[in-house]
Each structure stands twice: as C-alpha cells, then as structure tokens.
Design a protein around this nucleic acid. Structure first.
Lengths: 116, 116
DNA sequence: CTTAAATAGAACGGGTCCGAAACGATCAGG
DNA sequence: CCTGATCGTTTCGGACCCGTTCTATTTAAG
C-alpha cells in the first residue's frame, strides 16, 4: 500500500508525468478531457453526457465538445440508449483503453523513480 | 521510499487529482503551463524561455504565451538578465509558490486515500 | 391526444492557443 | 564600426474551446 508521500515527491511525480505527456504530444488532452477519459475508463458504466457534466461541474456542451474531440481521436464512442432514446451512452474503445494503459505505465514508472 | 504502485492505483490517483483540479477550476492551466510552472518551481534556476522550450519540446512562442498567461495570473515573473540582456529569467512568486504547494497537498491527500 | 419535462446537440459571439515567419534588441568576432 | 548569430517577442491566419441560448427528439403525465 502506498506509504506516505512527501510534498517534494508528490510534486516531482506530477511534474515528471506531465512533462512526459507534453513531450510525447500524442494526447494533447485538456484537463477536462483527461478527467472525462479517466472517469469513463475507471468508473462503473453507464456514462451519460449529463452525468459527466454533473460529475465534473461543467456545462453539457462542454462535455459534448470533449466527446467530439475524443471521438475523433478514437478514444471513446457514443451510442443511443435503446431503453431511453434521449440518452447517449459513452463507451470505451480499444484505442482509449490502450491510451489509459500507457498513462498508467508512465505514472508507475515515474513513481518508481522518485528519490528518497 | 514509495512502495510499488499498481496500475489501478496509479490511474485512480491521476483521475482523482485531475478531477479536483477541474472542479475547483481555479487554475485552468493547460498541460504545458503546468509543466512550465512545476519546472520553474522544482528545478534549479536560472530558467530561460529557450531552456524551457527545449525541455518541453515545444516552440519558443508557446513558452512566451504560457508565461504571458501565468504572469497575468501572478504565478511567475520575468526579468531581463543583467549579464546578457538578450536573456529573460523566469522567477518565482509568492502566489505561484502557494499554487504549487496546494497542488502538492491535493496529490498527497488523494494518494493517501488510495484503496488497497 | 396534448402538454410538459428531459436530454443531447447546434448556433453564436468571444476568447485563447497554435506553429511559422518576421522583427527588434543584444552580443560576439573581425 | 559591421556582420552574423542569438534571444525573446510580435504578428498572422487558422483551429479549438468556452458559456449562453436555442432547437430537435424523445419520454412521461394528464
């Protein structure tokens, strides 16, 4: 289980991972998009636009636009809910799962390298 | 010091902290701005535009614009280098130090709450 | 059937950021 | 001096994102 993390280590970890993400430039996701991506892949489905908007504390169009961009990148997909056709269900994709997995690898690697 | 971090825990940590940052909305810093901020506050000075651009792997104007925004927010300050007046030295501010400190607190808190 | 509520998306005006290119200021060498 | 190199900034056209407002579709209630 994670032992205590000292302030210097916490900031160093955030710095190193952020730097890796910026350097690779592959994602280029905003903080909101990152929050949406991780919520979809970590929390229990189903995920709706309205639910995500409430969870992040932002407006619905912001979520719609985030999903537009992430859908264009192949990180998520949208489908109408058959039960209630007003709803749109956000689903995971192979590419999205891979991207999330890579992020996890970076965090773990940087965490392991933290100085004493 | 830090014991191994499992993939689920690493992603949960990144998710929770990102969600906190989005919710508070206080910062609203892009990944690049975050990388600049943490680099300035964690790495040894002096910091120049060119040096940061090389470190992040982005163009100089991108750094200049990031510094414009962050200067407007009071997170960093710029001063001409007296030795070589072509250079601009990026310096820390009280507000910036506080923002970095708060980020560290969030990371530590979320890390402490990670499930087994 | 009619009406009201709910959901996602589209339209709009404003703002920010991007990389490429050009610019001014400054330094170094001859 | 002059010339060329270096450094940060500005400009430019284009792309993206923001919140507000409005619209279309669908469901639920009367």
């Amino acid at each position: 289980m994670p032992v205590e993390l000292r302030p210097t280590q916490a900031l160093r970890l955030w710095h190193d991972v952020t730097l890796d993400l910026v350097r690779d430039g592959e994602h280029d996701l905003s903080a909101r998009q990152m929050a949406v991506l991780l919520t979809v892949y970590l929390e229990m489905p189903p995920h709706t636009v309205r639910g995500l908007a409430a969870k992040l504390g932002v407006t619905k169009p912001a979520i719609t636009r985030a999903l537009d961009t992430m859908g264009r990148l192949g990180l998520v997909s949208r489908h109408r809910d058959a039960k209630d056709r007003r709803n749109v269900v956000i689903q995971r994709t192979v590419a999205g799962a891979l991207a999330v997995e890579r992020l996890g690898d970076v965090v773990i690697a940087r965490h392991k390298e933290l100085p004493l």
